[in-house]
Design a protein around this nucleic acid. Structure first.
Lengths: 355, 355
DNA sequence: ATGAAAGCGCTAACAA
DNA sequence: TTGTTAGCGCTTTCAT
């Protein structure tokens, strides 16, 4: 329990920044006048306005957002509770969040959450709780959360306080707030259709170990759906194997799959990590990529493009847009608008690991 | 110029959070007493203390950090002005910053900066200026900056206001504030010594196109130094070629190098990106890695480990530590302590792209 | 050990 | 069009 150290005597005195009081004194007007000018509200004579503005400029005046926040009961901060960056695509989302926040005169406050077990996307719950509490403590005006049902109590608290909440990337049906995510089903559907259309023959799928979230199930469904459209009699479930997020997991799963079904002309993996393991397994089995077998991942992580020997085909999530839209929703909600969930379109990126 | 929209009538009213006034009323004591109890200062009778604490708990009291900040003239925010994540290792630094901030009851406010030309690490200066101004506007209590001499004017302003400033990753000698960075020279020195010691024979180096910053020069020096220790008569400059940060740049540079010096048994690249291009060039030249030639990068970017076919050997920067130390420095400075620069040790990570 | 009151910098209701 | 005043939630000096 770290207590703030008392500033010692040699503590650097911050050169006092000017306040509206200083401006008012110099301009010989009241505080209110200055405030009105600075906020561009009310009606002020041209002369006064100019004088105040000039003096403000001269004094290098910067409004004290803390004081303003205290009065308005706002922090002008939007909180983000998102997974930490080893899922590098989160960065792009954060970039979107930041850009939009700044455009709206807000500032993002990011509280990272860790995974207890990255392989299963298993969030560290106490850490998640703490991150949300931090945002509450900082009195953010709205919160973007990568949700987990095990902290429903805090979500309820947030909602009780009428703090706008937006889910990102995945959604809990039982949490009544909008969600911004990608159309996961369409992502794998497009990928599967693409391969099937190219005539690679039968294709396999590496799905999540457990479908704790709808989004994981959606990715699987997309594959099944495309497959069944292609061959009504087929039983694609036969060629889908459970895997986890890791390279190692994908590797092992693909090894099994390729042993059981060496005729496969393509494999779609529910994540880029798994796809990477898949590539390794194919190499080991002596399969040439993409001539003999095509591999497509999901997410478009940074490393997908930066594969020294074989840039990975993948389904890209529109990450910046996800972040920006989430912020825009928050902003609308803060201002009393009603908003609803949004599902964005994924994009198939064909690189060298597939035809 | 986005002006905040007036909250409309249907704006959700935030359920009022309790204040010390509420506590004081219920406990029938003065505001001061409550404040003293809550801050654990002054001397309060056990009975009163307990009563106040209980009521606070009961009322679900959370201090209003905005109000507290207004009085104390602090924001309890540390600002970070760091490159955006396409240099993915920045994430780890940010993780360190965040962790340490939270431990100190601070919160990080991160203002990303973009590169105008990533290939030359060329910062987008107007964007950098804006990011620093944002932090100033938010009245952060200290700033961590990835410095650039073209915004010296703002740094001067920050220093004038006596806002603690810490440089990270690289340092400007003319900027009088501490810097936290890695020993770049030692990084390449260790890598070169390692390869030389393994008996790979002559080794080459892909250095920055232009050594605008000492850190780039240091990486080159490390290579030169190790080389000269190994063979006093050698002229290693002959086998070093200018490159840029990109995969493509490294690829082209390595191609030249390998044509001019096909006997090279190893190449060290000043960044992992360049190393990746290097790998590609070697493959094209029919060189087997690592049997015939060893490749070592620098930074340990996420993709270095996640190379499907050939995980990259590299020099790792202790990224979390860099971030944590920067925050710790800021904290010390806020509290009037004197601190000085720190140079951390890099670590050679041997994976599969080198012996 | 505790209370009363002032004030941090700003906005806003009410006057003039 | 402008001024006066109160107050946001908290800390802190000065009393008691």
């Amino acid at each position: 329990m770290q207590k703030n150290v008392e500033p010692s005597d040699e503590a650097p005195e911050t050169k006092k920044r000017s306040t509206i009081k200083d401006i008012a004194a110099r301009a010989e007007v009241s505080l209110r006048t200055v405030s009105l000018v600075l906020n561009n509200t009310g009606s002020i004579s041209q002369a006064t306005r100019k004088r105040v503005l000039d003096i403000a400029q001269d004094l290098n005046y910067q409004p004290n957002i803390t004081a303003r926040g205290l009065v308005n009961n706002r922090s002008y901060l939007f909180g983000g509770s998102v997974p930490r960056a080893n899922l590098s695509f989160i960065n792009a989302i954060i970039a979107g969040i930041e850009e939009k926040c700044v455009a709206l005169n807000y500032e993002p406050l990011l509280a990272s959450i860790n995974f207890r077990d990255i392989a299963q996307l298993d969030t560290d719950i106490p850490a998640l709780e703490k991150s949300l509490e931090r945002l509450l403590y900082r009195r953010v005006d709205g919160i973007i959360s990568f949700p987990d049902r095990r902290v429903m109590k805090i979500y309820r608290k947030i909602l009780d306080h009428h703090i706008p909440l937006v889910q990102i990337l995945r959604s809990l049906p039982e949490l009544s707030c909008p969600c911004i995510k990608v159309d996961n089903l369409k992502g794998t559907y497009d990928a599967a259709r693409y391969l099937l259309g190219k005539g690679v023959g039968q294709i396999g799928f590496l799905r999540y170990l457990n479908n704790k979230f709808d989004e994981a199930a959606d990715r699987y469904q997309g594959y099944l759906q495309a497959y069944q459209e292609w061959d009504r009699g087929a039983d694609p479930e036969k060629w889908s194997v459970p895997s986890d997020l890791t390279v190692q997991g994908g590797y092992e799963a693909a090894l099994h799959l390729l042993t059981a079904a060496p005729h496969l002309g393509g494999i779609i993996a529910a994540t880029d990590y798994a796809a990477l393991g898949c590539v390794r397994a194919c190499r080991e089995k002596g399969k040439r990529i993409p001539e003999e077998i095509s591999i497509i991942g999901f997410d478009d992580m940074e490393f997908a493009a930066y594969q020294g020997s074989l840039p990975l085909s993948t389904v890209r999530q529109p990450k910046e847009s996800l972040g920006m839209l989430a912020v825009e929703h928050l902003y609308r909600m803060v201002n009393g608008e009603k908003v609803s969930s949004m599902i964005l379109e994924p994009e198939l990126i064909v690189r060298e690991s597939s035809i």
